[in-house]
Design a protein around this nucleic acid. Sequence first.
DNA 1: ATGGTTGTAGGACAA
Length: 269
Amino acid sequence: MGIRISTWNVNSIRIRLDGLQRLVETARPDVVCLQETKVADHLFPAAAIRELGFEHQLLHGAKGYNGVAILSRRPFIETGTRAWCGREDCRHALASIDAGEGIGPIEIHSLYVPAGGDIPDPETNDKFAHKLQFLEEMRDWSMSLSPDTPAVLVGDLNVAPLESDVWSHRQLRNVISHTEPEIERLNRAMEDGLWIDAVRHLIPPPERLYTWWSYRARDWSASDRGRRLDHIWVRPELEPRFDDVQVLREARGWPKPSDHVPVTLSLKD
DNA sequence: ATGGTTGTAGGACAA
């Protein structure tokens, strides 16, 4: 049976329902993890999404900003949310789901790391300080996870760590998402066997790979000034289950696109 | 060169 897990920063779920349907038809996910749903739970378009086959929905949203969700064809075994940096700002939802006979239950985490504002100085920019603190907390949290439970962490981590994750390492090295302090902290959160970057395991550098293109470009595809901000990490024990990864670049060209595209991981039995 | 666009809002702010 295996399992297919998609992650997508939708930048408002209510205006991305057509896109979600296209994602479901194209990538055939069993589980969809969303970020930036930008809607309070009682206004979430649950019925329309149920129609797409996702009967089980874990919502963790707020009015206007942030918001994460996990949509599943299969029942949840357990669900939860987590507050980061002492803030209840709807950036993390988790659910355990049966991934099939050979794999068993896995814990799936949908995460939305703060973007961090514009100025890469934690002294003058509180948003950047928050982002760095969040990334530091990711290591502590990762080390606290049970070593027995296979886990997958997906979402908009808002950091493009590798040179081949950005259109120009030189021009972005002082731009938030690709600065040294962010990359250091993101790497610390993965090191020592905590997580494997599943996407780069299956599509290794130096191949360029992006999941986000700014809305501000005249022609996003022609200029192709993208960054890989959306990630899928898995605990090392799941590595033998890797089957395939798909970055749905074409979604950036859909009508009313999000600025992020979906990423899908297939795990096999 | 310090722009440009999208979204939630129904003005300013976040991304």
